[in-house]
């Protein structure tokens, strides 16, 4: 069963693009990654799904309910952590957390207390006095204290120190093991690769890939390193070439026979071909020179 499904979801701001014809499906119980750099449309997608902004065309459902017409019912089972956390000036952390619980008409006292303790959050402080990291912690507690069925997290780790990041992902994994669906939007590829089973990549408001992490890693692009030369022959159409010492490394997605025939003619003494990491896959999709402009054909 799909927890999130978007069908040709589009949001435009006048002449500016937001998201374009987004088709997205997140299954129940998934730990799903949503990857893209700043301005790609990640937050627009999330804000549209949460009903903060209205779609220009297309439709989407969460828990099988329409995001526009049944927003209130949907939000009762969603925990949302925004990329930037802002709270009402003058309130204490305790008051903000209690307000969030009251707005949900839920008694979350025990869970909130446990989360605050795990994250090392001082609830007596005023929110105006908090650092970015501590504001994020308040946001984590507000998003998770009611044990939502779906957690939507927009750049959740920015501002959190490594120890708290680890604790945060431990909490997410616990929630995931209890059956919650996690939708993690991030441009930090390592946290997506480490935690998610499937991911979507968004570029220029369009979804350019959606697949399991395993399949995304099986892109036909390879990281090729030639030892003994410092430049890549133009006929290979290499991307992301990097020179270090007496070798050159590049991403190659062409015919392997062409690579071998070109390499034979070069004064190389070694050659390695490896699977690229997620960051390289990301660059593969984002390379502006990418043939076929991000290859619609590779879209899942």
């Amino acid at each position: 069963m799909s927890v999130i499904s978007a069908d040709q979801l589009t949001k435009s701001y006048g002449k500016s693009r937001g998201i374009i014809n987004l088709d997205l499906s997140v299954d129940e119980g998934e730990f799903f990654g949503f990857i893209g750099p700043n301005g790609a449309g990640k937050s627009t997608t999330i804000r549209t799904l949460l009903g903060l902004i209205y779609p220009t065309s297309g439709r989407a459902e969460i828990f099988g309910k329409d995001i526009v017409k049944q927003k209130k019912e949907i939000l009762a089972d969603v925990g949302y952590m925004p990329s930037e956390a802002f709270f009402y000036s003058g309130m204490s952390v305790r008051e903000v957390i209690a307000l969030s619980a009251k707005l949900r008409k839920a008694d979350c006292g025990k869970e909130a207390e446990a989360l605050c303790e795990r994250l090392g959050l001082d609830t007596a402080k005023r929110v105006d006095e908090l650092s970015l990291g501590n504001r994020k912690k308040v946001s984590v507690v507000c998003a998770l204290q009611h044990k939502p069925k779906l957690c939507i997290l927009d750049e959740p780790t920015s501002g959190l120190d490594p120890l708290i990041q680890k604790e945060f992902f431990d909490i997410l994994k616990e929630r995931h093991s209890e059956g919650a669906t996690i939708f993690l939007s991030s441009h930090i590829l390592s946290e997506i690769q480490k935690n998610c089973s499937r991911a979507a990549i968004i570029k220029g408001g369009r979804l350019i890939a959606l697949d399991s992490m395993e399949n995304l890693s099986k892109t036909n692009a390879k990281r090729v390193t030639l030892h003994g030369v410092k430049t890549v022959p133009a006929e290979l159409g290499a991307r992301n070439a990097e020179t270090a010492g007496d070798c050159v490394s590049f991403l190659y997605s062409g015919d392997i026979k062409l690579l071998l025939s070109v390499a034979q003619k070069l004064p190389i003494y070694d050659m390695t071909v490896t699977e690229p990491g997620l960051d390289e896959i990301f660059m593969h999709y984002y390379d502006s020179d990418n043939r076929g402009s991000a290859k619609d054909g590779e879209k899942a």
Binding site: L52, P82, F86, Y88, S100, L103
Partner: peptide, 14 residues
């Protein structure tokens, strides 16, 4: 203006 609308309107309240 104070960016709190996102906090308020992502709770189950119409």
């Amino acid at each position: 203006k104070e960016h709190t609308a996102e906090f308020l309107l992502t709770h189950p309240i119409s």
